[in-house]
Amino acid sequence: MMKLLNKRNIILILILLAVVFPFINQNQYYLHILTLAFIWTIAVYGLNLLAGFTGYLSLAHGGFFAIGAYGLGLLTVKGGLGFWLSFLLAPLITMAIGLVIGLFALRTKEHFFAIYTLCVGYIIYLVIDKWESLTEGVRGLIGIPAPEPIGPITFTTPIAQYYLTLVIFLLVVLIIYRIVHSLTGRTFIAIRNSEELALSLGISTKKNKLLSFVLSTFFAGLAGAMYAGFIRFIGPEIAYTTITFDLLTYMIVGGIGTLAGPIVGTFLILILSQNLQFLQDYRMLIFGPLLTLLIIFSPRGIVGFILLHYSNWKTKKRMTIPKDQVKEG
């Protein structure tokens, strides 16, 4: 039994579940929510790469999400470009803006960085909100086209959109997994742990922090572009701090600096708030305090809590079995 429940099998079962879900559940609404959850999770992964693995809490990610969304929206609606070209360009534009902002923002540390990025987020919001000739301001950008068909595959039905999102999502998870488990990921973690020590180990903290920042804006922008292509209507509110704080909540509840955290946090909160209708507007009554409590009592969220108890349990087990049987955790 234990053998069957190893990490790889759990992941395979989850992927299988995600693939067959549209066949088990015919409810379009749930499909819609899950598609959104995949999109948000991608943005949370972006935030987590920077805040969780590199130690820099950015409060501008709602803004970068919006740049990705407006990037796609403006390129298609006003630029007349095709969907896929715009979809490719939007995250790259976000990344380019992220690069410029990162160059300056990363000169600051800790709370200065948080305040700096919060201001950047606000500026992005205000620009989108006020620059009506470009963004249509509060009226919002309407008429964003759906993804064009690729060969015989069309993306007009919710199910097709669901699978498209799922594929991109899985790709993102794979990429994040590989980054975190590579020397690059180890480098990020070393910086989070102690910049001074990382520097003295010959790591260019400047370069690596910028890399992490730009990557995280890329994922935020990608999620934004996916959102715009899925919902097909966007307004300035997607750049507001509310979105940043939502992303932050998903990340902290799931587990900052863990690989499974963004999925757990985003899905848990989105599904919970869907099922508790009365919570819609007031979900922060529960998730706000939860955020505060978790950061005090389990700083690495739900996933961190489970990992901690799992490793304690394993340590206990280790004491009872001969040492040579325990190899690699």
Binding site: I179, S182, L183, A190, I203
Partner: peptide, 19 residues
């Protein structure tokens, strides 16, 4: 300790993503 030898390596993001 593994990261201690990082400065003698050249792998970048590309290497990470494509293993």
């Amino acid at each position: 300790v593994v990261v201690g030898h990082r400065l003698r390596t050249k792998s970048n993001l590309f290497d990470a993503i494509f293993r």
